[in-house]
Every structure is written in structure tokens, then in C-alpha cells.
Nucleic acid binder design. Structure first.
Lengths: 185, 185
DNA sequence: ATAATATAGTTAGATAATCTAATCATATAG
DNA sequence: CTATATGATTAGATTATCTAACTATATTAT
């Protein structure tokens, strides 16, 4: 997941006139199929925009640590399974929804940084178990507080009651969409 | 934005044992800084997961049309401004939060597909205005109904009242996060 | 009027994350 | 003990991003 970044440009680039969400809502009314609920589609579009923003915020938060969200995800997964289950590349690929070849490359990156190492299984010579190195654990110790702070900062603009309502809705949303995608943690 | 896809693999790859969000919530409690609200962070994590899922759903919906969400975004922007404002590459870059060089490449892709063309400005020989071709307009006519349906499908799992509450919250969230990121449509 | 500077856009070269297809080594099953 | 399945890697592509350098054109300042 490669994501765009901040505009470092010297000059404030000319900006397109703001259309506002009304223009999109109108487009939706004009171009949605008759069987599509326009109000649902408008809400969905807003969620899509917000999703982009959420990922941008997380990217920005992680940038100083030179780690992507996917890579942090892998390190967290390994940490959470440590002592309970030895993680392999195939399992990771399956969990992340990527091909094994992609997992290899992801893991190569993490290994090159010195955050994980592979240890060949004694029972099955084809497998390697992935472990965090000391450096990997230290990285997590540094990054996780920032990561949680960034997560928390997402809902800065909402008061306690709104957060509670949102939490309930997000749980329901999560169940439904993970069911649909066949994913989940 | 390059995104992962469905697992076409022949065999059901071995899967990691499910940890469930409890494991993450516990990790949060253990590793969040003291100044971080754990409940907010947990909600933020859920939103991060859901954001990933939302983008996955949209990717899947657009895949048959051989267009990425960013590219569709560009086509929609051009369509929405058509007749009101001639869009340039710099403006697009600014709006999308990417560098001009990246916009050039994005537009090259769209031009190669025959969906847009560039028309050099007569007033200012440096500028080119981006227009939709007939094929580009037709593409939008095909894709937009699917796009809106996919947006609407995101909230399939919620009833009308929940959607209304969520909509309000998403609007507030949107305002806050766009303010923070300095982005917006 | 011209020289300096700014702007719009492109090109070149790099990186990250994904993909498919092929390959290698090891296990398992007929 | 041979055939097939599996875990992991490699090779070769694609897409989306970046920075830095460059070209052509426009604007500004002397």
C-alpha cells in the first residue's frame, strides 16, 4: 500500500474551485441506477472519502518511523501470536489477503531492516517461522504508542457520547463488511 | 494506490488462528502512552480496519472496468467541472494531494485508455486543459451506476435509523479530518 | 527591451506493493 | 517409490507514488 504524501512544493499550487459534496450528491441522483438508494450511496461516498483520510492520517503518523501500515500490521500480528503460534509466510499471506509471493517480498523488507528473522522449521523443511528480533521488538515499543495516539486522534473531533454511538455502528459495520469480504483478524 | 486482491489460489491457504479484536484492545492497553485515551484508540483502530475494508470493496467493484478509484476520481472531477472551469494538471495534482509529476503519469494512463485528452491553452502556452473524450463520458455512464451501487452496498448491514446517525457522525468526522489534513473536495 | 524569475508540464530514475507464472525443495499419499 | 501437493522464492510486470532536473512559456523588475 503506497500512499501519497504532503505537498512540499514551494508555491501554493493553483487549486480547483471547491465543488462541495452537494455536487457529488447531485451527480449521484443523476447517475445512480434506479435500484440504488441514493441516500445510502451518498453516505457510502462519505465513508469512502473518510476512509482515504483515515489512511492518510495513519501514513503521516508512521512516516517518521520509516514503516508502512502493512508492515506494522505484520509486526503486530507476529507479536500477538508470539508464544502461542509460530507464524509462517503462507499464513501471513492468507491473513493479509495477499499472495505468498507478495508476503515474501514484504518479509524481505522487514528482514532487511533487521526487525524479523526467519527460522526454518525442524519438522517441515519447507516452512520458516517468522520471529521478531530484539530490534523489531524495540521498534514496536517505540511505534505502538504513536500508533495508538494516531488512532485516538482520529476521533478528536467527536465528544464522548458521539464516540460511543460511532463505536457501536463501527462494530456492526465491521462484522458485516468482514463477512462480505471474508476477511478479519 | 495499488491494492491487494482476492485469493485465487487453488488450495485454502493455512490460516493464522483468529485473535479477535480483544487481543488488539489488550495490546492497546499495554502499549498506549498514558496521555492516550484507550477507548478512543480502540475506536480509531476499528475505523482504520473498516477503512481498509471500504477501499477493498470499492476496488473489487471497479476491477471489472479496469479503472482504479483514483482514476475514477479524476474523471469525476473533470466531469463535475466541465463547462464551469477548465481543469489543468497542476490543479488536479493539488486537489488529489499528489505531485505534478504523478499527475502527469496518472493523466498519461487515462489518455492512453482514450478517456481524456489534453488541449493546450491559447492564452497560456504552458497550460493544457483536460477534457473527457466521448469514450471517457461513456465509461462514466457505465461505471457510475456501479460505483454508486457499491457505495450504497457499504451500508447494507445498517438499518435506516442507523444510517441516519452514521451520516451525521461521518459529516462531523469529515469536517474535522479534512481540516486537519487540509484537503477536501 | 531584456534579463531574471516563476510556473506548467514532462522526463528520468527510484521505491513500494502488488500481481502471475515458473521453479525448487520437501512432504505426503497412492 | 513415484506422483502430487505444499511452502517459499524468484523472475518479470504493473501501478502509483516520490525527487530532481529539465523545457518552454509567462511575468516581473530593472
Amino acid at each position: 500500500m503506497v500512499r501519497k504524501h504532503i505537498n512540499y512544493g514551494k508555491t501554493p499550487d493553483p487549486s480547483l474551485p471547491r465543488l462541495g459534496s452537494e455536487a457529488y450528491n447531485e451527480l449521484c441522483q443523476q447517475t445512480a441506477a434506479t435500484h440504488t438508494s441514493v441516500s445510502a450511496a451518498q453516505l457510502g461516498l462519505l465513508m469512502l472519502w473518510n476512509s482515504d483520510h483515515v489512511l492518510d492520517v495513519m501514513d503521516d503518523a508512521l512516516a517518521p518511523y520509516d514503516i508502512s501500515e502493512s508492515k506494522l500490521d505484520v509486526l503486530m500480528l507476529i507479536r500477538l501470536h508470539a508464544g502461542q503460534h509460530d507464524v509462517t509466510a503462507s499464513e501471513l499471506a492468507q491473513r493479509l489477503g495477499i499472495r505468498k509471493a507478495s508476503a515474501t517480498i514484504l518479509l524481505n523488507g522487514l528482514e532487511k531492516k533487521g526487525w524479523i528473522h526467519r527460522q526454518q522449521s525442524q519438522q517441515d523443511g519447507r516452512k520458516s517461522f517468522i520471529h521478531l528480533t530484539t530490534a523489531g521488538k524495540q521498534l514496536l515499543d517505540h511505534v505502538l504508542p504513536e500508533f495508538w495516539q494516531a488512532c485516538a486522534s482520529l476521533v478528536d473531533g467527536l465528544d464522548e457520547q458521539e464516540r460511543q454511538v460511532l463505536h457501536k455502528l463501527m462494530l456492526k459495520f465491521n462484522t458485516h463488511i468482514e463477512n462480505r469480504l471474508g476477511s478479519g483478524r
